[in-house]
Every structure is written in structure tokens, then in C-alpha cells.
């Protein structure tokens, strides 16, 4: 397995390639979440591509389902399915649906796409572990715009109430959503104070710094009686100069020329 830095670089290249091939999809939020996924799957997730449904595996819920390309990239690199499959993203009959489908892709633990629902699913998984005396952990990757959904806060209350210390949110705080800056559309900040008030252990990091991600994930494992949210400051479109911090690159695929430039930058 590649080290996480190399893993993240390869993931970003694969994301650009698959979006170019499908001529549709979401680059911005896939690229901002890449480092979280690289470290999580590279060093923390207890999963086995040979037995994707093993009962005691760690669970991952991509609650911002539109970042599917990032998840597909890491799952393919981990060996859950062949790399060649990535070229079929969003094509008719492909297992790689626009938003992840647990019944079509090995390694996907929950079908998502409707924002705001994933944390509740993750809560149920974490609660099941508690009920069964199992020690697997549950990770949920969320968007910052997604925090505007009311159900997120129902689930946040639930997780703290049931002391789900086996649950971790990776919050991709890239400050953008479709219509622009989250602060302009409907400001969910300060997210750290909100989660703290809801009873969560809050860790704030640079969401592109692998050492900080690593430390935060390790720290979350030590916390007892509380769920943890790791709020990562990120850049939407990270790694591709013309996509960085551009709301316009939320859900648009690069053309051939843009793709070539992006890949050249990522080779960098």
C-alpha cells in the first residue's frame, strides 16, 4: 500500500480521470475530502476487500454522497474492485452510481445521496455495536453545507445521548456549497461551538494535513462516553488550481483540456 500522501495524490488523479470519462460528477467536494479518506482508509479502517461484509469491520458512511468519486477511488485502490471499473462512473448499468449504492459496490456500507441522512445511519450502526458488545468503529464524512439539514442535529443529539464514543464525524469544512459561501447562504458556523453544546468531543484541524488527521483519529479512539467530530479546514477543489475555492466546480466535470491541466498539476 502507498503511503497516505501518495495515496491521496493517486486518488485525486483518479477522481479527475473518472469525472472526465463520465463527463459529469462532483469534483470540488471529492477533492476536499480526499485527505480525510486517504488517512482513514490508509491507516485506520479495519476492512478486508476479500470479505467486504465481515461483521466486525469498521463502517464508513459517506453522508455527503456526492463525493462518491473520492470513495470509489480509495475503495478501488484498496482492492475492493478493479481500477478499470472507475471509468464506468455514472454509466448505464454501472455499479458506480452517481451516489454510492451499497448493493452495487463492495465496500460501501450505506447508500447515500440525500444530504443529512447519513449521520442517523451511522448512529444506528454505532448503537448496534454497543448492543452487541462489538468494538468496531463508525466513521461519517459530512459536508459543511450539509450541516444546514435539521436531521443532522437530531442525530447529533442522539449520538451524545447514547454516548456513542465509537462514532466519529469527519467534517469537510470547505466553506462552500452549491449557491456560494456557506456563510452567505445560511451560516452553520460556529460548528465547533454547536457540536460542543450538543455534547460532542470536538477536534479542529487542517483537513489536508495528514499528520493532523492521523493524530485526531487516534485521539478520537481514546475518548470515552462521547462521540467525536473532527472539523477539518479544507479547500474545495484542493489540488487543482482552477477548481480551488470555486463554488462553480461543485458539480461540473472538467473537459479534456482542463482535465489534462489538472492531471499535470497533480503529477507535480
Amino acid at each position: 500500500m502507498l503511503d497516505t500522501i501518495a495515496l491521496a495524490r493517486t486518488m485525486r488523479q483518479e477522481i479527475i480521470k473518472m469525472l472526465t470519462a463520465s463527463a459529469s460528477g462532483h469534483p470540488g467536494g471529492s477533492l476536499s475530502a480526499t485527505d480525510f479518506l486517504a488517512v482513514l482508509y490508509g491507516e485506520f479502517m479495519n476492512v478486508d476487500p476479500a470479505e467486504p461484509r465481515k461483521a466486525d469491520r469498521d463502517r464508513f458512511v459517506l453522508t455527503k454522497g456526492h463525493a462518491a468519486p473520492a470513495l470509489y477511488a480509495i475503495l478501488a485502490l484498496k482492492g475492493f474492485f478493479p481500477m478499470e471499473e472507475l471509468a464506468n462512473l455514472r454509466k448505464l448499468g454501472s455499479p458506480l452510481q452517481g451516489h454510492p449504492d451499497m448493493h452495487k459496490v463492495p465496500g460501501v456500507d450505506a447508500s447515500t445521496g440525500s444530504l443529512g441522512q447519513g449521520l442517523s445511519l451511522a448512529c444506528g450502526m454505532a448503537l448496534a455495536a454497543k448492543m452487541d458488545g462489538q468494538d468496531y468503529r463508525v466513521y461519517a464524512l459530512m459536508g459543511d453545507g450539509e450541516q444546514q439539514e435539521g436531521q443532522v442535529w437530531e442525530a447529533a443529539m442522539f449520538a451524545a445521548h447514547y454516548k456513542l464514543d465509537n462514532l466519529v464525524i469527519l467534517l469537510d469544512h470547505n466553506h462552500l456549497q452549491i449557491d456560494g459561501n456557506i456563510a452567505d447562504v445560511l451560516n452553520p458556523d460556529p460548528l465547533d461551538e454547536k457540536y460542543r453544546a450538543f455534547g460532542w468531543n470536538v477536534i479542529q484541524i487542517d483537513g489536508h494535513d495528514h499528520e493532523q488527521i492521523r493524530t485526531a483519529l487516534a485521539q478520537a479512539r481514546e475518548v470515552k462516553g462521547q462521540p467525536t467530530v473532527i472539523i477539518g479546514e479544507t479547500v474545495k477543489g484542493k489540488g487543482v488550481s482552477f477548481m480551488e475555492n470555486q463554488a462553480g466546480w461543485h458539480g461540473k466535470a472538467p473537459n479534456a483540456e482542463q482535465s489534462a491541466q489538472a492531471l499535470a498539476e497533480l503529477e507535480g
Binding site: 442517523s120 451511522a122 448503537l127 448492543m131 442525530a155 443529539m157 447514547y162
Partner: peptide, 22 residues
């Protein structure tokens, strides 16, 4: 599991539990 007055969350939690064999 009492989920409180939070039906949307309850549905999701039920799914998470079901995904783990319940």
C-alpha cells in the same frame, strides 16, 4: 431505543441498526 421527537433521525437509526443485522 427512544429516539425522542425526531422521526427523521429515528428512521435513519433504524436503518443503521438493520445494516448491522437487527
Amino acid at each position: 431505543v427512544d429516539c425522542g421527537i425526531a422521526e427523521q433521525d429515528m428512521v435513519g437509526v433504524a436503518c443503521g441498526l438493520a445494516s448491522c443485522g437487527k
